[in-house]
Structure formats: structure tokens, C-alpha cells
Design a protein around this nucleic acid. Sequence first.
DNA 1: ACCCAGGGTCATA
DNA 2: TATGACCATGGG
Length: 220
Amino acid sequence: MKRRLTFTQVYRRLYTAHGPQHWWPSKNGPFEVMVGAVLTQNTAWTNVERAIANLRRERALNARAILSAHPRRLANWLKPSGYFNVKAKRLRAFCRWYLAQGGTNALKILPTPRLRADLLAVNGVGPETADDILLYAFARPVFVIDAYTRRIFKRLGLIDGDEGYETLRTLFEQNVKKNVARYNEYHALIVRHGKEICRTRPRCSACCLASGCPSKWSGL
DNA sequence: ACCCAGGGTCATA
DNA sequence: TATGACCATGGG
């Protein structure tokens, strides 16, 4: 009977194997993080970077400029990130909300449950996008759940995999020390691990999360 | 040529 | 509540 890993042990192994991921250090401010959170829905991050580069080149990396641009022009800037018509509409909806709320300085004052509910009310912002924004743009201790989280932790026998989003978020927040830097890194490591390892090794039988893992992934 | 990516909405039953 | 269709580019 193999022992099951704790959530903390999984984190240690992932960090040892993959190192810090430097996700969204907010170098260019919270608004860019929020834009990225919307654009990265079901989309490779490299494609999102191209779209954001377009916005920056057009000096449109702010809510007012995005709203004043013609929707077709906005969609054209977003083209590399895919779903460009959908995302143009979603980004506009988000920017309308953002300005109506009074921008970052007003939003960052709101308590987390209120901010989360308000985000979820914006068309195009679902639970994962809302939590991305809460964690990576507003530094709130919210654990982000995604498809990789379900796959990996199901394979590890720590969850069933068909739990609802809120159930899983609560479970992770109860089992991982409530710390923004930790939640930030943990989610990024899960994504990194899922992309790099779990697609080619579907049962996690020979990666850093398996007992007796090869040094290649364990970093030992 | 096929599969997938740092999801969410909407219609339908 | 639970599926299914739909959105669309770029890299492997």
C-alpha cells in the first residue's frame, strides 16, 4: 500500500523539480494581469503575449483605450490569442465594469468575497478567471483550480476529480497554508507540471510525483 | 493531418 | 445539473 502524498509534499516535489515559475509578477501593473487572465482562457500563453504586445504597441493597454477602439479593430489586435471576436466582447465588458467600479485603486479596497462576486458577474469571467485575477492581480489568498489540478490530483488519489469548482477550491485552501506567494507558485507549478509531464506520462508513474521517481524529474 | 492550450457562455433536456 | 456546440490562433 503506497502512501498518499500530502498537498504540502506535492508542492515540495513540484518546486524541487521545476523551480520558481515567475507567473504574473505584476511588473506592468494589475490591469495587464487582468487582461491576460481574460485572454488566456483555453489559450497558450505565448499567443496571449502577442495580443498584449499588440495592445501595448497601439497604446491600448488601458480600459479607456480598449473601450474607445472600434470592436473590429480591438478584435484584430486580439487575433493571435484566438477566439478574438468572443474575447473582444469579453474584454470590453470587463473594461466597462472596471471603469464603473473606479479602477484598480477602488477595487483593491474591496473585501475578497465581494470582489470575487463582482468579478463573476462580468460576462466572460468564470471562476478560474476570477480567481486568477484575485490571486495574481490583487494578491488575495485564493487557490486557483484548473483542468490540470483535477487531472494531477485525481491521479494522485487525493480527489475524485468530478467535484465542483468551489468544493475543490475550499479543499485546497484548507490543505495548503494560506499564503499568497505559496498559492501563486503552487498553481503555476501545477500548470507547468501538467503541460510538461502529465500529457506524455498519463499516470504520473514516472515523474517527480511518483515514489521512486527518476532523478531527472526529482531534481535529486 | 491531428491535438491541445494558463475557459466560459448559451441552448437544450 | 448536466451535457454539447461553439469560439479560433499558433505550436507540437
